[in-house]
Amino acid sequence: MKSPKKKAAARKPARRSGRGAGPDAVAMLKADHRKVEGLFKKAEKAKGGAKEKLVEQICNELIIHTMLEEEIFYPACRSEDVEEDKMDEAQVEHDGAKVMINDLMQSGASAPMYDAKVKVLSEYIKHHVKEEEQPRKGLFAEAKRKGVDMNALGARMKARKLELMREAEEEGLPRPEPKSIGAAPKSNGDGARADEADGGMGGRLRHFVQEAKRRHFSQSAKRALD
C-alpha cells in the first residue's frame, strides 16, 4: 500500500515553465471569445438604449482582446515561427473588425443600418474565432505545437488586461487603429481590386456584408410567411 506522501507525489501536476507561471494564454483568449459571443446574442434581441450599451461593451471587450493579442500573443507566436501567412491574416482580420468597431462607436442605435453593422461585426468575429480555435490547423493549435510558453504569456496578458480594464473605466480606451491599411502601394485603383481579389480586408468585409444581408433577408422572408 502506497504511503500518503507517495500518493500525493503521484498526483503532482507537471512542472510549469519558470519564465513566469500564470493562467494559460489560450484559455484566456477563448474565455474572451465566449464572453463576446454571449454579448452578441443579447444584443441581437435588445433594442434602443439597451442595445447601445451592449454594443459599447462588445466594442470595449474586442478592443482589449485585440490589444492583448497584438501586444503580447501575436509577437510571441511570430518569434516562435508560427506560419507567417496565418499571422498576417489574423492581423488583417483584426483591422477589418477595428473599422467596424470605430464606426459603431461613433453612432447610436438610431443610426442608419446600425443593426446590420452589429450583425456583420458578429459574423466577422465568428469567422476570426474559428480561424484561431480550429483544432490542429488553427492559430492556437500551431502556437502550442511550436512551443509558445502559454503560462508566461498568460501572466503578462492578465496583468495587461487589468490595466486596460481600469483605463476603460477611468478615461476610456483609445480607438483601435488598423495596422495593415495602406501597407501596400496603390495606383489607379489596382490595389483596391487586388485587395478584393486576394481576400484582403476589403474583400473580406464585402463578403461578410453580403452574407449578413442574405441571412437578414432570408429571415425576414421566413417571418413574413409565418
Rank of each mutant, 00 (worst) to 15 (best):
E83H: 05
G154E: 09
K98I: 13
L121P: 15
H128D: 08
K117N: 06
H128N: 08
E177C: 03
R156K: 15
A152H: 13
S110A: 13
V129D: 01
L139G: 06
L68R: 13
E93L: 05
K119W: 05
L164W: 01
L121D: 04
E177V: 10
P185Q: 13
R136T: 15
A152W: 14
V129K: 01
E132M: 11
G154H: 09
E84T: 15
F73M: 15
D88P: 02
T66D: 04
M87I: 12
Q91I: 06
E70C: 05
E69H: 03
R78E: 13
E89N: 08
V99S: 07
S110D: 15
R166I: 15
K186T: 10
R78V: 13
E171R: 12
L164H: 03
R166N: 12
E69F: 02
I125T: 15
E167D: 09
P75M: 09
E171F: 00
E170P: 00
K144D: 07
G154L: 14
D115K: 13
K119I: 02
A152I: 06
I125S: 06
S107L: 05
N102A: 01
E167R: 13
V129I: 09
K126V: 08
A141M: 04
P178F: 09
P178W: 11
N151E: 12
I181F: 08
A143P: 10
K161W: 04
E163P: 14
D81T: 02
A141F: 09
V82P: 04
K179D: 01
E142K: 12
L164R: 02
S187E: 04
I64Q: 06
E133M: 05
E163T: 14
G154W: 14
I101S: 01
E93N: 09
V148C: 00
N151F: 14
D81L: 05
R145M: 04
Y124T: 13
E123S: 06
L164F: 00
M67K: 03
K86V: 06
I181C: 03
R136S: 11
A97C: 09
K144W: 08
A183I: 11
V120E: 02
D149N: 04
D95E: 10
P75N: 03
P176G: 04
M113Y: 15
A76I: 12
G154N: 10
S79E: 15
K119E: 10
A116I: 12
P75H: 10
V99N: 09
E171G: 10
K117E: 08
M150Y: 14
L162I: 05
K144L: 11
A168P: 00
L121S: 09
N151R: 09
S79C: 06
D88A: 07
M100A: 13
G147P: 15
Y124W: 10
S187W: 06
D95H: 12
L173F: 00
I181R: 03
H94Y: 12
K119D: 07
L68Y: 14
A183V: 11
V92P: 02
E171H: 05
R78H: 07
V118I: 07
Y124H: 12
I181M: 05
D103S: 04
A116M: 09
K117R: 12
R156V: 09
A141Q: 06
I125D: 05
N151L: 06
G96R: 03
